[in-house]
């Protein structure tokens, strides 16, 4: 897997490089700001970019804007955004339009190195990795309240776990229920939201989240 890292803290940039290299991935570029990120990604076409939200010059939302740009111009490049805080507004911007190969995680999640590397790999493969907090914020702020309020707590839980990019089997394992039960929850969610079920896990979750964020 070919990875580009955009992170202005040298400490974290080196740490991420070491971690991903140790797991057998190739760091093809490591940059410190959003402008270089877009340039390098356009030139090298990596499988995935790991992007910090706050970067020079203004240290606000450069990473999100660069990620949105890349998702429009380089659809085959996966983008995993790391942030100190997860914000529903940023998630909505990220999920708008193209719905594959996207991730948005709290920076803390890199501490669980196994899961983090799995998330990077998933996004590189066109999957998703959304922080559970993103989902709870999207549900909390959705303009489609009457719909959201129809979801049971269990269904919300299932939705959150799927948004992290888990398969039905993995969701079933996490909740200690059967695969069939998960499938039933999923079809209930789609039914309540009035969305047509589709066959790919990440696509249907993103459809739900994009719908909630709109």
């Amino acid at each position: 897997m070919r990875v580009v890292i955009a992170e202005d803290s040298v400490l974290l940039r080196d740490g991420l490089s070491r971690l991903l290299t140790a797991r057998g991935h190739e760091i093809v570029g490591a940059v410190g700001d959003a402008e270089q990120l877009v340039a390098v990604a356009t030139e090298l076409r990596p499988d995935v970019c790991v992007v910090d939200v706050r970067m020079p010059p203004t240290h606000t939302d450069e990473g999100i804007r660069a990620a949105v740009t890349m998702r429009a111009t380089l659809p085959e490049v996966g983008v995993l955004v790391l942030s100190q805080y997860v914000e529903e507004q940023y998630a909505t911007e990220l999920l708008a339009g193209n719905t594959s190969g996207v991730g948005y995680l709290l920076k803390d999640r890199v501490a669980d190195v196994g899961e983090f590397v799995a998330a990077v790999e998933r996004v590189a493969g066109g999957g998703t990795a959304l922080d559970p907090e993103v989902v709870s914020q999207l549900l909390g702020r959705s303009r489609k309240r009457d719909v959201v309020e129809k979801l049971t707590p269990r269904e919300r839980e299932v939705l959150g776990l799927m948004a992290e990019g888990r398969t039905n089997a993995a969701v079933a394992q996490a909740l200690v229920v059967s695969d069939g039960a998960v499938e039933k929850h999923v079809s209930n969610i789609f039914g309540k939201l009035g969305l047509a079920p589709s066959d790919t896990d990440h696509r249907r979750v993103l459809a739900v989240l994009a719908y909630l964020g709109s």
């Binding site: 939302d61 805080y85 709870s136 914020q137 909390g140 702020r141």
Partner: peptide, 27 residues
């Protein structure tokens, strides 16, 4: 530390305003 920094002044408040910043505290 994240909760502490967030209580001080979240970056999203500067970037996107009150509406966006209220999402996460509501969540």
């Amino acid at each position: 530390l994240r909760d502490l920094a967030r209580g001080i002044h979240p970056a999203v408040l500067t970037d996107r305003g009150l509406d966006a910043a209220l999402s996460s505290i509501a969540a």
